[in-house]
Design a protein around this nucleic acid. Structure first.
Lengths: 196, 196
DNA sequence: CGATGAGTTCAACGCTAGATGAATTACTTC
DNA sequence: GAAGTAATTCATCTAGCGTTGAACTCATCG
């Protein structure tokens, strides 16, 4: 059936491999997303993936590259009354992850849960790209910033785990706005309440 | 050096395999904990593991069997003033996971994050063994119980992820009592506050 | 038309994994 | 002490992984 050699026509195979890879990394995480499976889903030989991206890790980095730039989101989440920042954070997080663009973020998170290399990538990214930017505007005492932001991280990570990884109902399919009003105030408390 | 055949003396190899397995599953999760590595750490041939436990999945079930029985813990966590239940929950959770007995729970959780089969096991276990017992005593309106308990689960799961899996400081090495007083009230809010 | 190069597949290597069946050694019982 | 059974290892099978180098086919440009 499928002959060897170049295919007729002009198709951007490289991009379609990237799309399949993003989806697959998000569904299975770094380790279980095999290059062979990605190639198969893209209708392509595994060797072609290496031809374009070199190694599996470079492919992962390429997948992460494009869609994650918190440069726009963070200010957007911060704009608004200070005492509703918690709600806005949850609302924005959910809208990002539920969107197609959030697939990369989910891939990153899922991978970080079981792979040391991607876990380091995520820590690095979260700390330098998100926490440092967001937290300095929200937390008054800079000395308390690391603890407070890590506490915020527990609630947000837990929401991701329950909604997207474990898929525990009714949170898995709950309305984002309901979740925002329920969880937001708890985020707010991590930001504001005194650390006994 | 190491000859074939039965070893001299009376040693309970089966049990020591189980201990190594529990530790290994907790550290690496189901998928990355290889039978070969477990056997190696236990100073034993991989085939012996199969001889005792049949398959990797049966070994995992055996590991889970003994130490997880919430029959005693739950009432203990519930005993006390109603309005401090949140703090007691966090305090107890941390004391369980930090203890050697909590290794199995950690193994279960870690595995569930990347393996579908263990994720189903965990959902089943959490829902039938923990939530149903604990929540009926804490949540007034039974209609709200599923959502409220799932919200509690987000905060607790997030704490596990940040403290034990991602090991994000300062939560990773924070004093349990501090975490309890910081996080407990948020749990309390999930239990009590009206669901807007 | 012919050459060059990019796109693509083929076949294979080296590795790790879970699993299996036969062979080897020790303990137990009569 | 011989028979039988339990504990243990050995060698091996099958399957999947990431990766590599060579071979093949098409598009493009002179």
């Amino acid at each position: 059936m499928k002959r060897s050699g170049r295919r007729p026509g002009n198709q951007d195979t490289r991009t379609s491999i990237l799309e399949v890879a993003r989806r697959t990394f998000a569904e299975k995480g770094f380790d279980k997303a095999s290059i062979r499976a990605i190639a198969g889903d893209a209708g392509v030989d595994p060797a072609l993936v290496h031809h374009y991206f070199g190694t599996k890790e470079k492919l992962f980095l390429e997948v992460m590259n494009a869609p994650i730039n918190p440069g726009e989101l963070i200010p957007q989440a911060l704009a608004g009354p200070r005492e509703e920042a918690g709600i806005r954070l949850i609302r924005m997080a959910l809208s990002v992850w539920d969107s197609p663009a959030g697939t990369a973020a989910l891939a990153m998170f899922r991978s970080a849960l079981s792979n040391e290399w991607t876990a380091r990538l995520l820590r690095e990214f979260v700390v330098t790209q998100i926490l440092r930017r967001a937290v300095r505007e929200l937390i008054v005492d800079p000395e308390e910033a690391p603890l407070r932001s890590a506490l915020v991280a527990t609630q947000i990570a837990g929401l991701m785990v329950v909604r997207y990884v474990l898929r525990l109902e009714p949170v898995a399919s709950a309305d984002p706005e309901l979740l925002a009003t329920m969880i937001g105030p708890n985020i707010q408390r991590f930001l504001d309440e005194p650390l006994d």
